[in-house]
Amino acid sequence: MRFRACVENVPTFCKIMQVIDRLQKKCIIQFKPDVMRIICLSDANEAGIQVWSEIKVSTLFNEYRIQSNADNIISMNIASASLLHALQGIQNALATSGTGSGLGGEEVLMKLAKKNDQALLNFALTTPTRTGRLQSLTYDVRIEVLRALDMTKINEPLCPDADTLVLLPSLPTLRSPVERLRALSSTLFVRANIGPPTKLLLEVTGDENEVKVKVEFGVKYVQINRQEEEDAEAPGKDKERLYSVPIVAKSFVKFLNCHIVNGHVIAAICHRHCLILYFYIGSAGADAGGVLTFYIPSLVDDGPM
């Protein structure tokens, strides 16, 4: 099992881990030849959120070399905080070295290592000093390598195609209403139509039926591709219809709290199934710096929608 790479985009990696750290203490990172996957399973947080993200290797790393007996895939359990700590330390060191532009020839090397039988992810930053000598900063992050067999037991949740996709309003706009709604009820209904006009509704009914609150946001519908556009034109699809999913209000609050980092979020609603939030770190689009995918399952609810 061999693995080494240069971390080219430390700030983005750092931001991703900041978000993950807010959600969960531990996560699974899986390095594949072309992508890095970050997985957070719902059993470790009571809110039921799962994160399944794929980040292209090329957006974060270069000189990426990986070898293993399991199809060249390496999976590991890692403490989010210690990885974040290492990345932040390196980021700070890069910033203070004054040559953060990359001209100074410093490089951040990440490799799999072993020390006293303990598997480690080793980060080493080498910077040239003014006198021309090299100085280095290293971080060892303890990891637990997962066997391929263990990984087969971890499956990504299956979802039907999203019924509607909308661009979420900016997160500070959402935070205040969502926190108030959460105070009123533990169940939050998220609804959206296709439109135009496209609207996103957040609804609660007080736990003691004492109040009903509906917050309506004007949002943009997100079209994935041309095909979708044609489908939407088809008469069969009702553009006014609201697609709804009841979720644990706390999980939405938790998601909003992850957002210390600015970024666009696209919300996909699978009617009565789940809410999927695609959080773009950096720019949105095909060449996005990174996408974190949050799954929030629907609550089982037999009531009228």
Partner: peptide
């Protein structure tokens, strides 16, 4: 006028 609106029905 262009931002979100909230409708509350208080029993």
């Amino acid at each position: 006028s262009s931002g979100p609106t909230a409708t509350c029905e208080i029993t």
